[in-house]
Computed example of a mutant assay.
Amino acid sequence: MDYHYPIDETWSKEEIIKVVHFFTLIEKAYESNVKREDILQAYKIFKEIVPSKSEEKQYFSAFEKASGYSSFHVVKQARQTTEGTIHIEKGTWK
């Protein structure tokens, strides 16, 4: 990993840890498998920290630009599937 997670300097240490955990699960969805429920729970917590849709898009875009991983598509798949795990092939969303 040669990139940084998008974070806000005004967040508490606990909030930063929760946001980094969410983005770590996004990475895991591309690199191996992640439980659907883990993604949905981490996204729910992320939304408590970043309730604004426009800010969410900014953080998702910054993370995708840095990592190549689409948070939007992982969350979308987690919401739409009934499968227990999520795995996305990098580049399949474009």
Rank of each mutant, 00 (worst) to 15 (best):
Y69R: 15
E9V: 12
R79P: 07
K47S: 13
R36E: 05
L25G: 00
E27V: 07
E89V: 06
A42D: 03
M1D: 12
F60Q: 01
V74M: 06
H73C: 09
G91S: 13
E27N: 04
F72Q: 11
E89N: 10
S52C: 12
H21F: 15
D8T: 01
I86N: 13
S71Y: 03
S52I: 02
K44A: 13
N33G: 05
E15K: 11
F60H: 07
F46I: 04
V19N: 03
H21N: 13
Y30L: 00
E14V: 07
E9Y: 05
E56D: 06
D8K: 11
V74P: 04
V75E: 08
I88S: 02
R36Q: 14
V20L: 06
E55Q: 14
V20K: 05
A62D: 11
F22N: 04
D38Y: 13
D8A: 03
F46N: 02
T92A: 01
Q77M: 03
G68P: 00
I26F: 04
K57M: 12
D38R: 14
F46G: 10
A62Y: 14
I39M: 04
V74N: 08
N33V: 11
K76M: 11
L40T: 00
Y3W: 09
K65W: 07
E37N: 12
Y5R: 01
K76F: 03
Y30M: 00
E56W: 07
S71K: 03
V34A: 11
K57L: 07
V75I: 08
Q41F: 04
D8N: 07
K28P: 00
Y43G: 07
G68Q: 04
S54C: 08
E55V: 10
E89W: 13
D2V: 09
E15S: 05
E9N: 15
V20Q: 04
T24E: 11
K28F: 08
D8P: 00
T82L: 06
T85I: 04
Y43D: 08
S61P: 15
R79L: 15
R36Y: 00
K90D: 01
F22S: 00
Y3G: 06
Y59A: 00
L25W: 00
E31R: 14
H73D: 10
Y5V: 10
T10A: 12
F72E: 13
A42L: 03
K28N: 14
F23R: 01
P6C: 02
V75C: 05
T24Q: 09
G91V: 13
I16N: 15
K28C: 06
T82A: 06
Q80I: 14
M1E: 08
I45P: 09
R79H: 05
W11Q: 15
Y69F: 06
P6K: 04
E37T: 12
I88Q: 11
K65H: 11
E56N: 15
